[in-house]
Design a protein around this nucleic acid. Structure first.
Length: 723
DNA sequence: TCCGCAACCTGGATGTTGAC
DNA sequence: GTCAACATCCAGGTTGCGGA
């Protein structure tokens, strides 16, 4: 069945002035046929068509392909009740259509119409339409909707008005003034400079899309309306909704339905009719089964996030299931490089082929190695050793995708299989490994492995002058006196927070001493996040105030008998309103019921239920984890994860909430003289509540600043445990 | 192959301007 | 006065190129 034939039968011009491919066609909405009028239901439309054909057309199995024998007649004005009825019917039709759609929902005609309704404020009930959807090489979908004569004119007018309203920009009038030799206003100068500035990526994209349009959309719209021969009674309205940085770009074209028969090609010689064959719909598609890393280095084998080979599966589009028995098919899949700006949505062979990235001039083939994949009997193909020889920065998208396609001729099959695309990723020059940041950083990493500190950059030089060369040095300085370190770096506040946060994720490994400090390979990217061992037993009688810094880390290195994993987490955090360590005495009996321990890392915040019992305080010999030692007033608590990430923002929004933060360490953990005992602190100052949006770092700064002023307002604990 | 240099790109911070 | 949009500045990140 051809659209041309269908259109001629229905006196509908299906048109496109671009190189577009039809991807969907059918009736979007019709009314219900009743005695005395000529509304059609979807099924009736299909029945009519089949009856006309007198045979079981393959189209009957194709969703969204429902053609009526006769074109919808002129529709009388729709009453409110009729409109509601129609809309209900339409919803049913669309739902049915959607459920049976054999291709991506976002590519379907009904999805386009839904979008159109939302953006333009029209209802399907306002018009009786047939429709078809095309996608051109630029990835823009064009939806052709036909409506009845009666509603056509007001619809077009409304579309134009809305389009004008959207296009109107405040400076346009001033720009016009400037063109008329009026003295330039500041705004006009700004407009002028805007014209010279570098275009933003989405503007370039828009420009590309517009290059397919020799005239503005509105000009074309009006022009086409004026120039169409009366005999055709064709009115064309067009609005392009362009959404920057989004693949959802629809161009809506409304075409009228003529009551008369006419020669389509003669009447509209510049328009091209589209052909759709049922055989063109692919039944299977290739899918990348595992995820390609977001960044890949040249010269490195392409594997997934788990360092396993990339796998490709053959999927039945209709069922969505994997084809597990392909033994009889001689299928070989080629792996190619695709421009990252190609989207899965509306993917077809032409678009796929047009986006294959070739090598740059003078360069080696972009992808080297075994780029041919053979399916096993389970329908899974596995890539061999393949790697990139060139980075992806020279593309506008700056990203590649891997593409999987099948050469039908070479495979000796007529089966059409939709090409597959991986997620987009960046391919970096392998030299990038030389300055890659480490997540998490290691203590013996150079300090420029931290975010915000460039190799040989300004900050590294400043730190170097103060003999801060490694992450370990950085953390030492941070713990001893963060304000001094902050002063040395003299960073922007956000940059400072960023580098501190990154440094605090520092991870230590048992074989630390054996690591090569200058090794440039990424350090164990797949390592699991640090998990502390169970804490040893406390010996409360050995309590000793030792420090005030939030993250006891560096000096612990001098206690080799202590396992590293104790070092990167705070041992205890106290949050409260007073000095006593006994929460009951500290908060008073009236608040006791709201106090509760942090017994897990689930991050729950908020008042606990009344009546919850106070936890027992740690005592000698009692197994206790640090999570059990975090309190605050008003029934809120802070999780260890929050502490690690230094994010107290949700806490500081609580009026009246006061912080008191302290950390304690076993006294034999080698803190030595790094922290002066007199710097033991609290952060409730003069018992004034903290109500501003303080970041953890600011809290810590406050700790230092206020420590000497309130020497006795301390709630710090220390325990010793047997190691 | 490694390294240094320089140019360019990118993103965040900040200031300016006009609309409301 | 506030907010949004935009330009400008700045520093880190990335990459091409040439020399050792």
């Amino acid at each position: 069945m051809q659209i041309t034939e269908w259109a001629q039968r229905k006196s509908i011009v299906v048109m496109s002035n671009r190189d577009s491919q039809c991807i969907d066609t059918g009736f979007i909405a019709t009314g219900k046929r009743q005695r005395g009028n000529n509304y059609f239901t979807n099924n009736e439309v299909e029945d009519d068509f089949l009856n006309t054909r007198g045979e079981n057309s393959p189209i009957s199995t194709q969703p969204n392909l429902h053609f009526a024998q006769e074109p919808p007649p002129i529709q009388p004005s729709i009453s409110a009740s009729r409109r509601e009825e129609t809309q209900l019917n339409c919803a049913s039709i669309v739902k049915k259509s959607d459920s049976a759609a054999t291709h991506n929902e976002s590519s379907s005609l009904s999805a386009a119409v839904k979008t159109f309704e939302q953006l333009q404020g029209f209802s399907k009930g306002d018009f009786v339409i047939a429709g078809t959807i095309f996608v051109n090489n630029a990835g823009v979908r064009e939806v052709f909707l036909s409506c009845n004569e009666e509603n056509k004119a007001p619809w077009i007018k409304a579309m134009i008005d809305q389009h004008k309203a959207k296009q109107k920009r405040p400076w346009e009038e001033l720009e016009q003034d400037a063109n008329q030799n009026q003295p330039q206003s500041k705004l006009a100068r700004r407009i002028s400079s805007m014209g010279n500035r570098r275009k933003r990526p989405w503007e370039e994209l828009e420009q590309d899309a517009n290059q397919n349009q020799p005239q503005s959309k509105l000009v074309r719209l009006i022009s086409s309306m004026e120039n169409q021969p009366q005999s055709c009674q064709i009115q064309v309205g067009m609005i392009r909704i362009f959404k920057a940085r989004s693949a959802l770009r629809f161009a809506f074209i409304m075409i009228g339905i003529s009551k008369r028969q006419y020669d389509i090609e003669e009447a509209v010689p510049t328009l091209r009719t589209q052909t759709l064959h049922i055989e063109e719909w692919p039944a299977h598609k290739l899918v990348f089964a595992n995820q390609v890393p977001q960044s890949i280095y040249t010269g490195r084998n392409i594997t997934d996030n788990d360092d396993k080979p990339i796998q490709i599966q053959l999927i039945d589009i209709n069922t969505g299931r994997q084809c597990t028995n392909v033994a009889g098919l001689n299928i070989k899949v080629d792996i190619v490089v695709i421009d990252g700006d190609l989207e899965q949505e509306g993917l077809d062979s032409d678009k796929f082929n047009s986006k294959i990235v070739k090598r740059r001039e003078g360069k080696r083939p972009l992808l080297v190695g075994n780029t041919e994949v053979t399916f096993n009997q389970q329908g899974v193909g596995t890539t061999g050793d393949i790697c990139f020889t060139d980075n992806s920065s020279w593309l506008r998208s700056r990203k590649f995708r891997l593409g999987a396609c099948i050469d039908s001729k070479r495979c000796g099959t007529n089966i059409k299989i939709q090409e597959g695309l991986s997620e987009k990723f960046v391919v970096k020059d392998q030299r990038g490994l030389l300055y890659e940041k480490h997540y998490p950083p290691m203590l013996n990493d150079k300090v420029w492995r931290l975010e915000g500190i460039a190799k040989n950059g300004k900050y590294q030089q400043r730190l170097k002058e103060k003999t801060i060369k490694s992450v370990q040095d950085f953390l030492k300085s941070l713990n001893a006196n963060p304000s001094v370190l902050k002063e040395i770096l003299d960073m922007q506040p956000n940059a400072w927070k960023k580098v501190v946060k990154h440094a605090r994720t520092c991870r230590m490994e048992p074989d630390l001493a054996n690591l090569d400090n200058n090794a440039d390979l990424p350090k164990s990217p797949g390592l699991e996040p640090f998990t502390p061992n169970p804490m040893p037993e406390f010996q409360q009688e050995n309590m000793e105030v030792v420090m005030n810094v939030p993250v006891p880390t560096v000096d612990l290195l001098h206690a080799p008998e202590i396992q590293a994993q104790y070092m990167v987490r705070p041992i205890s955090i106290g949050m409260g309103m007073g000095q006593q360590r006994d929460p009951a005495a500290r908060f008073g009996s009236d608040q006791m019921e709201y106090l509760h321990p942090i017994s897990s890392l689930n991050g729950n915040n908020g008042p606990s239920e009344a009546g919850e019992e106070m936890p027992e305080q740690p005592s000698a010999g009692q197994g206790m984890t640090m999570e059990n030692d975090i309190y605050c007033n008003q029934g809120y608590h802070i999780s260890i994860d929050d502490y690690i990430s230094s994010d107290f923002s949700h806490m500081t929004e609580i009026p009246g909430l006061e912080f008191q933060i302290s950390c304690s360490l076993p006294k034999n953990m080698g803190m030595g003289n790094q922290v002066a005992p007199e710097s033991n602190t609290s952060f409730n100052g003069n018992n004034e509540p903290i109500s501003s949006n303080l970041h953890a770092d600011e809290i810590f700064d406050g700790l230092s600043e206020q420590s000497t002023a309130i020497p006795n307002s301390v709630w710090i604990e220390s325990y010793q445990w047997d190691l």
